[in-house]
């Protein structure tokens, strides 16, 4: 049996918001260590890897591994009904046909209970071995979201160029070009505002802007985002959770 209680429903709301536009159906795999999701978008370009660790829950028990096949659009309709500050409890039997979603208001005696039908999903699982990256950038997630939104207005591709001194985000479209250059710096008072650039080898990669626009929907999960890049390889974008992470792997574009 699975019984997981969150101190606030806001974490789950943000997670669903962050992934629902990339994938529609996915298995939530529940183990004694927490909940994981791996899902690939229909075009096989973007992969989501989510870990909500046991410590993200106020109370958590999962005696046996349980898979919850969830339609995220339906789940989102239910999860939106809770207030962000409500307790959120997920309950499922060992071989469940549905999952119970319970919101409890902390001040009033109001308990809202919903049941979501589960699906039997046959999903591709991709083996991601430990990747070696040539460059790692950590920056404020809101800044990365703004750069993505701004440059996406010019072109359907977004280029990321990393040199020793800086990282350049660039787009080249029909009516013009744009770029944003960031240098690494340390903000002692607000560490989350810092920009860290670690580069072993220079990088020049191009990605589909629409996929990065979907990735930045994870912005509300974390103050900062880490971008890991390797030549001619998928990039990794990571938002850290209080205990766990939301990672996106994005395949690059290449010259034909």
């Amino acid at each position: 049996m699975l019984e997981g209680k969150f101190e606030e429903s806001s974490l789950m709301k943000k997670v669903v918001d962050a992934i629902k536009d990339s994938v529609k159906l996915c298995n939530f795999n529940c183990t004694e260590h927490g909940v994981t999701v791996q899902a690939v978008d229909d075009s096989r370009v973007l992969l989501i890897s989510l870990l909500i660790g046991e410590a993200s829950f106020e109370e958590y028990r999962c005696d046996r591994n349980i898979t919850l096949g969830i339609d995220l659009e339906s789940f989102n309709k239910i999860i939106k009904n809770g207030n962000s500050s409500d307790f959120l409890t997920l309950i499922a039997e060992d071989s469940p046909d549905n999952v119970l979603i319970i919101f409890e208001d902390k001040k009033k005696d109001r308990v809202s209970e919903y049941s979501l039908k589960l699906m039997d999903l046959d999903s591709d699982f991709l083996q991601i071995d430990d990747m070696e990256f040539d460059a790692t950038i950590t920056m404020p997630s809101s800044e990365f979201a703004k750069i993505t939104r701004d440059l996406k207005t010019l072109s359907e591709s977004l280029q990321i160029i990393v040199t020793k001194e800086n990282v350049k985000f660039s787009s080249d479209g029909d009516f013009g070009t744009g770029n944003v250059v960031l240098k690494g710096f340390v903000d002692m008072d607000k560490p989350d505002e810092s920009i860290k650039i670690d580069m072993a080898r220079p990088i020049n990669l191009t990605f589909g802007a629409k996929y990065i626009a979907d990735i930045v929907k994870g912005t509300s999960l974390s103050e900062s985002v880490t971008i890991k890049l390797a030549d001619k390889s998928p990039a990794l974008f990571e938002y850290k959770l209080p205990s766990g992470f939301l990672r996106f792997y994005l395949a690059p574009k290449f010259d034909e």
Partner: peptide
């Protein structure tokens, strides 16, 4: 002209 690659050319199906 740029071509979008697939994750399947980098990661194996399990």
């Amino acid at each position: 002209k740029l071509k979008q690659s697939s994750l399947l050319s980098f990661f194996k199906k399990k």
